[in-house]
Design a protein around this nucleic acid. Structure first.
Lengths: 139, 139
DNA sequence: AATTTAGTCAACCATATGGTTGAATATTAT
DNA sequence: ATAATATTCAACCATATGGTTGACTAAATT
């Protein structure tokens, strides 16, 4: 529970990171940066888009902390900054158990039966499942 | 290179998945589903939001394939569907090497030096770095 | 049969997003 | 000094997003 809190709230970047990743142009840009630094115009060229448009995308990536920029003269060099990607992966790791093992399916089924019985036992409470009262079976 | 293509293009869900994950309400909803199925109103209650609003969020999650819905009578039961999360994690895995090992930093530095020399050697080509001509040092 | 409950739908609103163009800024090359 | 290059900025546009409310549909309860 405490860990969940940490994952959910100790990473206040997730909104920005996931949003940045939701655009294919930006994902492609990140991917090109795995090969090394690229200037803004280098990053822009493969895309059928104005330089200003590409520049905006880069700013989104920068804002999400996925790219760092070093200005050298008139060219802005962009570099992949992976830390926030690690945070995103960490968030996803919480859900790994839902695809890694069929054992988890069984666990899930048991939980379901549990719920079903509880529901059959009586009326649903008025606030049936706030985070506070669903800790019945904590991890 | 072929693998990169696969990661980038064989997962056409990434836009929708990452977009779905970019909203804290939706992430919280997913999280609550790790504890078992929830009806739409159960999912909605913890949030200071109209039922219709929450319903929209759930539809976004459904659209991204992160939630499945079984209608039983008048209640719609929502269930976590993790496969697409696995795809997202798979995409992120491509970047793991950028945070897992300091060895990669060295590799990166070497690549940088390589680039710098190439640049010093002559003018930058007109299309300096299309995906085709940056395969100089392939993975 | 009447009412409550669960949920969607449609219309609306403010703001965000992804894109454009044209002008502005600063650096480098001639 | 002039021109070219690299990039941002500001204004604009269409569409998407996250939210609301009120009306509607369908199922369960009384």
């Amino acid at each position: 529970m405490i860990l969940n809190h940490m994952v959910e709230f100790q990473a206040p970047h997730l909104d920005a990171v996931f949003h940045a990743l939701s655009d294919p142009t930006r994902r492609a840009m990140l991917h090109r940066l795995t090969d090394g630094q690229r200037s803004v115009s280098e990053l822009a060229t493969p895309f059928n888009m104005s330089l200003a448009g590409a520049s905006k995308h880069i700013k989104v990536l920068e804002g999400a902390g996925l790219v760092r920029r070093h200005v050298q003269g008139r060219t802005h060099m962009c570099q992949l900054e992976a830390a926030r990607l690690a945070e995103a992966q960490e968030w996803l790791r919480t859900y790994e158990r839902f695809w890694t093992s069929r054992l988890e399916d069984l666990e899930e089924i048991l939980r379901e039966e549990d719920r079903a019985t509880a529901q059959a036992a009586g009326k649903l409470p008025e606030k049936p499942s706030t985070p506070e009262n669903t800790s019945r079976r904590q991890k």
